[in-house]
Amino acid sequence: MADRVSASISIGGVLSAGAYAELIEIIASEGLATEWDGEPFEPHHHVAGEPLRLFAHEVAGGSFDELESWCLSRRVPFVRWCGGYSGQWGPERVVATGDGNAASYTVTENDEVVVSRSRVESLGSLAAVIAFFDGAEFAVPPLMVSTSAADIPAIHGAGNVQ
């Protein structure tokens, strides 16, 4: 059995109705809830104008592999946090801004970004350190579902799925 920890994810961007239906299926397969120890997510739980925030305990490896891969391949922005597993890995925040890539940040169990001396030295300047922290603080945009292709900006924009 895989090592398991608590994890959460916030998802945003603009999705077509079809992409949202795919997302719902993946969320259901991951067993995610609308709050810690809450009821499983249902489509009507999505609050318009807000990112979709989902939670789970006992997450294998601390990541939502299928969901995160789906988001990355469709350039859907998200931020995922997971707790650490003693002797295996520490708490982590993964930030995907919608460009198809994700960056990992070391955090505390309270999701506060921390940086090592060697990282500070490699960044080289206070401005670079601040930029590093700014990257970790990415604000996930609201998740919007569009029924009109005209409402969805070009796929090259962050978090837009046709």
Results as ranks from 00 to 15, higher is better:
33 A>N: 07
18 G>K: 07
16 S>C: 02
14 V>W: 05
35 E>W: 08
10 S>H: 10
15 L>P: 11
25 E>A: 05
19 A>Y: 04
23 L>Y: 09
36 W>F: 00
39 E>D: 03
34 T>M: 00
29 S>R: 14
23 L>A: 07
9 I>Q: 15
23 L>M: 14
27 I>A: 04
39 E>K: 01
21 A>Q: 14
10 S>M: 12
11 I>Y: 15
34 T>W: 00
21 A>G: 11
19 A>S: 09
10 S>I: 05
10 S>C: 09
29 S>D: 15
24 I>H: 12
32 L>S: 06
21 A>T: 10
17 A>E: 12
27 I>G: 02
26 I>T: 03
36 W>Y: 01
37 D>V: 01
17 A>Y: 07
32 L>N: 12
28 A>K: 08
18 G>A: 13
26 I>N: 04
22 E>S: 10
18 G>H: 08
27 I>M: 08
27 I>W: 13
23 L>G: 05
39 E>N: 00
30 E>S: 09
21 A>V: 10
20 Y>S: 06
23 L>W: 10
14 V>E: 05
39 E>S: 01
25 E>D: 07
18 G>D: 14
11 I>S: 10
24 I>M: 05
10 S>Y: 07
15 L>E: 04
22 E>L: 03
14 V>S: 03
39 E>P: 00
33 A>D: 02
10 S>R: 15
27 I>K: 10
11 I>E: 12
27 I>F: 08
27 I>H: 04
36 W>P: 00
38 G>D: 08
30 E>V: 06
29 S>E: 14
37 D>P: 00
15 L>R: 04
22 E>R: 02
26 I>D: 03
32 L>V: 08
15 L>S: 07
38 G>Q: 04
22 E>K: 04
18 G>Q: 10
10 S>E: 15
9 I>S: 15
18 G>F: 06
10 S>D: 11
36 W>K: 02
10 S>F: 09
19 A>F: 03
17 A>F: 06
15 L>G: 06
10 S>G: 11
35 E>L: 14
17 A>S: 12
23 L>S: 13
25 E>K: 09
18 G>Y: 09
32 L>P: 14
22 E>N: 11
